[in-house]
């Protein structure tokens, strides 16, 4: 079991622990999402363990689409500007259509869908930047950004998808026969490091939901 998987589990348990505080927000959907993530990672781990390597691509291909859909849903509910909400809303069918198109016409069933990942990464990074932009607007000035749970989700997503652009773009090359061992090592190293950052930031946001609820329930 890798360190990255451990962080995913910690994030899941943190979400479950903070369930009462997440219940009032859309962040509660992180619980089934993280559960799915851990299941997928476990299946992926088992497939490596039993040397069935090629077969886990399709799981991650489907899961990636679900991931982007989930993140777009969260952004849709956290954006304040109506225009950005609409963009996030329309991204959901767009990524599904792109994913299906990629599956049927482009990378098919035997390859890791890097095109979908890069397409989705671009939008997620864009959404993160838009979220930060909303915070620069004068109406938000008096609020503390560090105490906003979704800010930490954005931090994780931004760093994860920015950091993984290169390795996903060069995935096929890294996996090619002349680079297989070192390429896999580098891909795994970078990917796992970024996963640690991503799921740590998720955990921080769950804990902040709990703290914010405690503060708001104190008598004034």
């Amino acid at each position: 079991m890798t360190v990255a998987f451990l962080f995913e589990l910690i994030s899941l348990f943190t979400a479950i622990f903070c369930y009462k505080d997440l219940k009032a927000t859309k962040m509660v959907f992180f619980i089934p999402f993280l559960l799915l993530t851990c299941v997928i990672e476990f299946i992926g781990y088992l497939s490596i363990l039993y040397a069935v390597r090629e077969q886990n691509y399709w799981i991650y291909n489907v899961f990636t689409t679900c991931e982007f859909t989930f993140y777009a849903y969260l952004f849709m509910h956290n954006f304040k500007l109506p225009f950005l909400r609409k963009v996030a809303f329309f991204f959901i069918p767009l990524i599904i259509v792109f994913s299906i198109t990629n599956f049927i016409f482009l990378q098919g069933t035997d390859h890791f869908h890097t095109y979908t990942i890069l397409f989705g990464s671009f939008f997620i990074v864009l959404f993160c930047c838009c979220y930060f932009y909303e915070w620069i607007l004068p109406e938000q000035i008096n609020q503390n950004l560090l105490k906003q749970p979704f800010f930490w989700v954005c931090v994780g997503l931004l760093l994860f998808y920015l950091g993984s652009v290169i390795i996903n773009a060069l995935f096929e090359y890294l996996r090619s026969s002349d680079m297989e061992k070192e390429g896999r090592h580098i891909y795994g190293l970078i990917n796992r490091s970024l996963i640690v950052i991503l799921y740590s930031s998720f955990s921080i946001s769950f804990i902040l939901c709990r703290n914010n609820r405690k503060i708001s329930s104190l008598p004034s």
Binding site: F132, L159, I166, L174, I190
Partner: peptide
Amino acid sequence: TIVIASVFFVLIGIFLMILVF
């Protein structure tokens, strides 16, 4: 180069956040 480029992109993200703060 791949490792450095990935770290570079992460640093860009961190820089962006520092700018916002």
